[in-house]
């Protein structure tokens, strides 16, 4: 007769694959990075020297760190804010019934679906001040008197924010559109019968219904933009002006792979992690309520 495994053992076995994955892919790298941050370690030599909080003390006095932090905040703040405003506007438009809506909904997703490297190469080409289409159009329309140097020191951050907004707004659109489609039509109709204006209906009916989704979207997009590496790196890659967009993830990468200071780089990564944790906690404390959980 075959013996059946006890329920508890069976339960552990069921979750074991997930536990192994989470431990090896998330917990171990995080723990390793924290451990590494207490050492002076070269990037490709096994030898390491315990420095305790030495790397953190150096970071506190490192002007490059503060500069990168500021640039990261500007980039994440501006790009997330614009994604929200434009994403919400686009979602409201796409929620309306009009001819060709399905095709446009599919089209709106396009920037989010193409690989980052393709998006960056295409946009760098379009924005090139010598032969790019964007400046050419602006000049022909006499909107500018001379080409705008989008990829130079003065506009590097602005152009990066614009491209990031183009690339990531579809995520906001899709998230909000999905929620908009589940809001009972009767709510809006009732408000309309009561004489509420379009703005009032949006302000007092639609927006409260979107609150929970907006909460998650703001949280995720802020974290993702603050830790964004690929778009930022590729945008500044190969250009001296790239330092205008040297955000914290880029600086951590540089410390690890071009200064060869793996311990210092790990400490920067840990600081980023702690800052995001703290910001998330504050965000939950300020904006998350019982009604959201419901």
């Amino acid at each position: 007769m075959r013996r059946r495994l006890p329920g508890a053992v069976l339960g552990v076995l069921w979750i074991l694959p997930a536990l192994v994955l989470i431990t090896s892919l998330i917990l171990y790298p995080v723990a390793y990075a924290i451990w590494l941050s207490f050492f002076d370690k070269h990037s490709f030599f096994p030898a390491e020297r315990w420095v305790g909080l030495g790397n953190y003390a150096r970071i506190a006095g490192d002007a490059e760190f503060w500069d990168s932090l500021w640039k990261g905040v500007v980039y994440a703040g501006a790009s997330t804010g614009l994604q929200l405003v434009l994403g919400l506007a686009a979602a409201l438009v796409l929620h309306q019934a009009f001819r060709g809506r399905t095709a446009i909904r599919a089209l709106v997703l396009f920037p989010y679906m193409i690989p980052t490297i393709v998006a960056v190469i295409v946009w760098r080409w379009l924005l090139n001040e010598t032969y790019g289409v964007v400046d050419d159009v602006l000049l022909r329309l006499r909107l500018v008197r001379e080409p705008v140097v989008w990829l130079g020191v003065d506009h590097m951050m602005a152009s990066l924010i614009a491209v990031s907004v183009w690339q990531f707004t579809p995520f906001v659109v899709v998230s909000l559109l999905a929620r908009l489609q589940t809001i009972p039509l009767e709510l809006g109709e009732a408000a309309r019968v009561d004489g509420a204006s379009a703005w009032a209906r949006f302000r007092h009916v639609t927006l409260p219904q979107l609150r929970a989704v907006l909460f998650v979207v703001v949280l995720l997009r802020s974290i993702w933009m603050f830790t964004k590496f690929d778009t930022v790196w590729l945008w500044g890659e190969g250009a001296g002006a790239g330092r205008e967009i040297r955000t914290l993830p880029i600086y951590a990468y540089m410390r690890t792979f071009t200064y060869y200071q793996a311990g210092f780089g790990a400490a920067l990564a840990v600081i980023m992690f702690l800052m995001l944790m703290a910001a998330t906690l504050v965000y939950f404390r300020l904006f998350w309520g019982e009604e959201d959980a419901a």
Partner: peptide, 20 residues
Amino acid sequence: PPGWTGHSYLDTFANLANDK
């Protein structure tokens, strides 16, 4: 050129060869 800090090595060859 005002955007020189963003110009790659190959961009400069292109500038020269294309009479820019």
